[in-house]
């Protein structure tokens, strides 16, 4: 029963081996390769301006991908993140339009808009968790319901058109000022760090992994899985709502189509980042790289003049490879 600890390796060699087997590091190398490739194809790619463009796409994707990371590690899936992004942006846009028309100041209006986005996100997240906990729907179906309802409501509310008329300062907030970083992007970076700490260092993350790894064991250990599900899906809603505000600041309006299909990009980023849809596995650092790779491909293809539809092909190849690496590793894990 007792197994001796593995024989000590020379420190540097084992560290190197760890790096190479680390999905995040591999993705980092892939990303570097992409940057080199795009720069070789068009030197203008290697500029702060393009980095700013990439980060402007990365910000909202990272928010929903972070949400999806928690959900997927818990063994669930949240298809409603994109719909929440669109709906919260639209509802906030109406609120900000009203306040601006009524002559309210920009700062107060934007704060209210932010709170509305957070509120809409939390509300839909709560509905998701109620559907899962009490209506006993599996997460796929529960969030498919809210995806449909959310997208539908966005179109009904807006009549299909973007809603502007908010504070004219909105777009200027999205202008990069710290190198390629704009204020919203810096906020996303800060949120990502906090989420990383809570996923990997705190009880909330521990229970998220435990639930995805073995929900029976988690319940048997006396942990309330209903509470944990509620927290996870409300966090997912909250982050998606923040993505809605991010898009509002970027476009100066809330569009009902914003966020359509964003859930697929988020899931792609998480899966490329090394998480398993079966739950219990994944790192937020992998998701960070996954999201960065996706958005780098988007801008890169535009800069080198390739039809952006090729992005889907690149993403498909990356997903297939990321998943097969996982399968290879699992095989090794069993063998050793």
């Amino acid at each position: 029963m007792a197994a001796s600890a593995p024989a000590a390796h020379p420190k540097t060699a084992s560290r190197l081996r760890e790096l190479v087997s680390n999905q995040t590091f591999v993705l980092f190398l892939v990303w570097i390769a992409m940057v080199v490739f795009f720069t070789a194809a068009n030197h203008i790619f290697f500029s702060s301006d393009v980095a700013g463009n990439i980060l402007a796409d990365w910000g909202p994707l990272m928010l929903v991908a972070t949400a999806e990371t928690f959900v997927i590690i818990s063994g669930g899936i949240d298809l409603s993140v994109g719909a929440i992004t669109g709906l919260s942006g639209v509802v906030a846009a109406f609120a900000m339009q009203d306040m601006t028309t009524a002559g309210q100041g920009a700062t107060l209006t934007l704060i209210v808009g932010l709170l509305v986005c957070i509120g809409v996100g939390l509300l839909v997240g709560l509905i998701n968790s109620l559907l899962i906990n009490y209506a006993r729907l599996v997460p796929f179906i529960a969030t498919l319901v809210t995806l449909g309802a959310g997208e539908g409501l966005s179109i009904v509310f807006t009549g299909g058109a973007p809603i502007g008329g908010g504070p004219p300062q909105a777009i200027s907030l999205s202008v990069p000022w710290l190198g390629p970083f704009s204020t919203p992007v810096l906020v996303v970076v800060a949120i990502t760090i906090v989420c990383w700490l809570y996923l990997h260092k705190a009880k909330f993350g521990r229970y998220t992994y435990a639930f995805g790894s073995n929900s029976f064991a988690t319940r048997a250990a006396g942990i309330s899985t209903k509470k944990q599900i509620t927290k996870i899906y409300m966090l997912s809603g909250l982050l998606s709502g923040l993505a809605g505000m991010f898009f509002y600041l970027r476009l100066g309006s809330g569009a009902p189509t914003t966020g359509a299909g964003l859930e697929l990009d988020a899931i792609a980023a998480v899966v490329i980042g090394g998480a398993a849809l079966s739950g219990g596995v994944g790192r937020l650092s992998g998701t960070i790289m996954g999201a960065l790779i996706l958005t780098t491909v988007t801008s890169g293809l535009i800069i080198i003049g390739v039809a952006p539809n090729w992005k889907q092909v690149v993403v498909a190849v990356l997903i297939a490879l990321a998943v097969s690496i996982q399968a290879l590793r699992r095989g090794e894990g069993k063998a050793s």
Partner: peptide
């Protein structure tokens, strides 16, 4: 983690770049 995963990791990088090349050629 032995050679297999290292090779797989390399393959990911190569294939990613290859896809890009493919995309560029048909642009």
């Amino acid at each position: 983690y032995n050679l297999t995963s290292r090779r797989a990791a390399g393959a990911l990088a190569v294939a990613g770049a290859a896809t890009l090349l493919l995309a560029a050629c048909s642009s």
